[in-house]
Design a binder for these strands. Structure first.
Lengths: 219, 219
DNA sequence: ACAAAACTAAGTATAAATACTTAATTTTAA
DNA sequence: TTAAAATTAAGTATTTATACTTAGTTTTGT
């Protein structure tokens, strides 16, 4: 049974999510909070597996709360809720250490998929998150010395939205089968995208692709 | 022509290296320095391709000098020289941003290989450096949030010296052909080591291997 | 509305990775 | 000195990646 705590300052929203989730075997909403501070208290007390937390709340917003959860090394997976697909919010959520990000308008299926995935230790970011990550520098992946050596090159081409998504997954070292599953495309399609990326970035193999991506600040 | 500057406080050592290198077409020692500070001055003035610099020198040691070179984004490749294969020195050299590391007792062939490789933009670290890297945490590769989440697991097994070397190269996304070349073994040997690593770390593919390596702090 | 670009997915072929094993040689530890 | 462990490298087979192309459909821009 996946125990879930909901944090949102609107009762109607909480009730709606509760109704959506509890219809589902295996997920139970064990407590609720109406702001970030209260969420921290409730988690300390009840130790749920998953926290679904709104980004915008009074007293303490969801991003600060998730950052605090990670600072305290609390053993709970966190799913961010937002009204709209804000690039700023997505980036801040990831930087705060959130395990997932969902829109309030997401379908029941997507909600369930997200809860189950983060409960199992995975990540779940809705929509166009891969290309948002591409467009942002969220991971300081190198030593300072290496950073100072890498020249940020001007891209001599553009990557399409889909290509950015594919690239992000390739750089996570996912194989074509997994990429296909994750993007709901066929394996052959993933293969061709990968091939096209190699051509665009003039890379002969995965290693060169990764290095080129770093050079162009694509990760 | 590869222009080289030597930095070492002992004239005899400089003379010895100079004799060793200048016998070789394509490499010219254009200036010398006897400490780190002097090395910086000489580089500013003469702009060599490669700096070969002793670690232990008066006034400013080699590590600090290389770190300063990188801080100032000076366009010169740096090769560290050390009397012995010290783990501490190797790690510090890498952290300072050195392109290579050699022992004073290295053969002429190794010297030439190292100079040519770093001049061409590559890295050259002598001896047992891959396993030294494995045993140390030299790259802060994650956001703080991710770091706080990753539990440092106790390895339920040991990796042999060779396995560590192979793992380091696999994690650099090198293919078996390149690994074989770099370690002077056959491609089939590299394949078997890779296979054995997958088994030891219970990874199904490169992605899982990378993640396991992170979990166990192997990179 | 239409053309261009992007996405999708099939085809065929080669190379590499993965899977698993066997076995000789070298290195290391006892 | 000897036995065990590690390294090396071959074998065969399956799966995946890479390479390149063609072509229909969908999306986007004009």
């Amino acid at each position: 049974m996946i125990n879930v705590v909901l944090a949102d300052d609107h009762v109607l929203v909480r009730d709606g999510i509760k109704a959506l989730l509890e219809d589902q075997t295996g997920i139970m909403v064990i407590d609720e909070a109406s702001n970030g501070k209260e969420a921290l208290e409730v988690i300390s007390k009840n130790k749920p597996h998953v926290l679904i937390i709104d980004i915008r709340m009074p007293e303490m917003n969801g991003i600060d709360a998730v950052a605090e959860i990670n600072r305290r090394k609390m053993d709970v997976k966190t799913l961010m809720l937002s009204m709209h697909d804000s690039e700023e919010y997505v980036v801040k959520s990831i930087q705060a250490g959130a395990d997932g990000y969902l829109l309030k308008g997401a379908s029941k299926e997507e909600f369930l998929k997200a809860v189950n995935k983060v409960a199992a230790g995975g990540k779940y970011f809705t929509g166009d998150v891969s290309s948002i990550i591409m467009n942002n520098f969220v991971n300081g992946n190198t030593t300072k010395a290496e950073e100072s050596k890498t020249v940020i090159k001007e891209l001599p081409f553009q990557l399409t939205k889909r290509e950015k998504q594919i690239l992000a997954l390739v750089l996570e070292l996912k194989n074509n089968k997994d990429i296909a599953e994750e993007l709901s495309i066929s394996k052959r399609t993933a293969e061709v995208h990968r091939f096209n990326l190699m051509k665009k970035l003039e890379a002969k193999n995965l290693q060169e692709l990764t290095n080129k991506a770093k050079e162009y600040r694509l990760i």
